[in-house]
Simulated assay, not measured.
Amino acid sequence: MNNPQSSYYDRFSAASGEGVKVPQQGGGGGGRGKVLFGLAAALVLIVAAVAIFAFTRGDDSPKQAAGSGSTSALPPVKATTWVNPTLGVGARPLKAGWQAQQATDGRGAFDVPKSDDWTLDSTDTLRGYGDPKTGKTLVIAKAPAAFAEGYCAQKKTADIAWLGLVNIGKRDPSDAGPDVAQKFADALAIKEDGSHAQEGKLSDPKQIKVNQGTIPALEYTITTPVGAPDECDKGKHYEVRTVTFSSGGKSYQLVAVRITDGPKQLSTETLEEIISTFRPSN
Rank of each mutant, 00 (worst) to 15 (best):
T125W: 01
A73Q: 13
V47E: 12
K95I: 15
S16C: 05
D172Q: 08
Y252K: 04
V240Q: 10
G88A: 14
S72N: 06
Q207M: 10
L120G: 09
D121K: 00
S276W: 00
Y8M: 10
Q99G: 03
Y9F: 15
L39N: 11
G26I: 00
P85R: 01
K264M: 09
Q253I: 11
R171P: 00
D131R: 00
T119F: 14
G90Y: 06
T86Q: 01
L126F: 01
G200K: 03
K95P: 13
K155Y: 15
G249E: 08
Q198P: 09
V139H: 02
K63S: 12
V89Q: 12
W118H: 14
V50D: 00
N282E: 07
K183L: 12
I52Q: 07
S61Y: 06
F55M: 09
V139T: 09
L165I: 14
G29I: 01
Y151F: 14
T81A: 15
P75E: 04
N84T: 12
G169I: 04
P205H: 03
G17H: 05
P132W: 00
A185M: 10
P280S: 09
Y238M: 01
V257K: 02
D60S: 15
F147W: 11
V22L: 04
K236H: 10
V240K: 07
L188N: 07
D111M: 02
S7I: 05
P263Q: 14
V50Y: 02
V139L: 05
A41S: 11
D172E: 05
V44T: 12
K191W: 05
I275H: 00
P216I: 02
V112R: 08
K191C: 12
G169V: 04
A91F: 05
A100W: 09
D10K: 15
L120E: 08
G213F: 08
K136Q: 14
K191N: 13
D261R: 12
A54G: 14
K183R: 15
N3G: 09
H237I: 11
G26E: 00
S72M: 07
Q253F: 08
D124F: 03
K95S: 07
Y252F: 15
Q64S: 06
G169P: 03
F147A: 11
T214S: 11
K264T: 14
V240G: 11
I160C: 05
K63A: 12
D10M: 14
A148L: 12
R107K: 11
L163P: 03
R32H: 04
F110K: 12
V83E: 14
A141G: 08
R11Q: 13
W82S: 09
L87N: 10
Q99W: 10
D175M: 04
T123Q: 15
I140A: 00
I222Y: 04
R241K: 13
C152W: 04
P229A: 03
S281A: 15
C232P: 00
S70A: 13
T119Q: 10
P4W: 06
A41E: 13
T214W: 02
I275G: 01
K136M: 11
K95Q: 15
A158H: 02
N211D: 10
A185F: 07
Y9N: 14
H237P: 04
G108I: 02
A66F: 05
